[in-house]
Amino acid sequence: MATEAHGESEGLVFHPMDQFIIKPLTGDGPVGLFTITNATLWMALTCLAVFALMVLGTSARSVIPGRIQSVAELAYGFIRKMVEDVAGKDALPYFPYIMTLFMFIVFANFLGLIPGSFTSTSHIGVTAVMAMMVFIGVTVLGFVKNGAGFLSLFWISSAPLVLRPILALIEVISYFVRPVSHSIRLAGNMMAGHAVMKVFAAFAPLVLISTGVGLVVTPLSILAITAVYGLEVLVSFIQAYVFTILTCVYLKDALHPHH
């Protein structure tokens, strides 16, 4: 896709999807299971960023927090409150898992906004694994905590008896669609924004090729990149938030399956 130049001029190069290519960091060899790739690098940087914020940032343990410690505490309070509000107090033991997901996604998203970087969360393989972890974890937890009573999640006792089997079918389908929507939402958002930026970026050097049209198109595309970048900053946080809050909602269903 988009391997050929297809702008108004031959000089314009459109490779909006190339930024998502996984490649080994050193050498040109094939990508094996444990090859150190650009994905590895940026996931490692994500871990480092989490470590920097949550461990180095709080190392002073000051009662009156500094800037970085305030941010770390803010993140802690934000997710903890979300877990407590959405999934209930008995979901707090699972708070570290949810915090892990949130910190990984939010830092992967933001690191992906650095020009020339690689966005781990733009890959469906990554988000699908996280979504499946949530799905399987929540389903197992539901059965462990409630036994067969977990199935009452699909049997809506407040609906008329005739409708219940139909509703149960719909509920089961929607339950199994959850990991799909959960993962595609995040990966799709991250991919789309980055691809759009890349397309606008490809238009930017037009002024070097054809001065007439370029005088109009180049400033416009630069403006568009700026605007989309601003939007992406917002989307990066919102998608991490959405992924996390949906995890909390699914967790609530597992802990309290009765409608």
Binding site: M17, D18, F20, I21, I22, P30, V31, G32, L33, F34, T35, T37, A39, T40, M43, A44, T46, C47, T100, L101, F104, S120, S122, H123, I124, G125, V126, V129, M130, M133, A187, M191
Partner: peptide, 19 residues
């Protein structure tokens, strides 16, 4: 590139390690 099966395993391994 997101749908390339050759890269999925690598990503999943590193993702799990990162998580």
């Amino acid at each position: 590139p997101q749908l390339c099966p050759d890269w999925m395993g690598n990503q999943i391994v590193w993702l799990v390690i990162a998580l």
